[in-house]
Amino acid sequence: MNKTAKETAKKPAAQSEAKPTAPAKIKVATMWLSGCSGCHMSFLDIDERIVELVKHVDILFSPIVDTKVADMPQVDVGIVEGCVNNSDQEHELKMLRERCKVLIALGDCAVTGNIPTLRNQFPLEDVLSRGFEQTESTKIPIIPNDPVVPPLRPKAQPLQEVVKVDLHIPGCPPDADTIWFALTELLAGRVPQLNEKNMRYD
């Protein structure tokens, strides 16, 4: 798998060198599922490099862009933070998967499930009861059952257990430099090769 990835990586790289200027901007969507927003914060930590980034990239859909889910556009790259925890998130993720060419799992929650998957060790009823009925601050113990509230899935799962993921960037959160490296590699038409030096799990 790795070999083929390398081979395919070389071809578009050669193509992009052939074309000196790319007139059309790359269209990007970012999504925030069951996560803490830390990975989006780390993304913003690329600081002034974001000016360079927006020369090449259009962010069309994101927690920082006011676009409704129903209007999710077709994009080139989808970047997802957080794991899949409820039916709504599953729906959004699958929709993004259909509408993007490259899907990136950003951060540990998206890659491994991380902290939200701690609940997987317990039956769902116990989790809901602990959260809504037994907490020390509970005054009226009611488990939300309004149809508007998306139900929790039986297990919280990392992205690749729900959809196909093209690139994993682990880290809690990944360093801004790692995110920048991955994005610039993609812009150059290469598959980012993460290694011991630019990758972390914590």
Binding site: V111, T112, Q121
Partner: peptide, 13 residues
């Protein structure tokens, strides 16, 4: 260089 796990997590208690 392991970035993601291709196997399903078991989440044992």
């Amino acid at each position: 260089g392991i970035t993601g796990i291709r196997y399903q997590y078991l989440y044992p208690a």
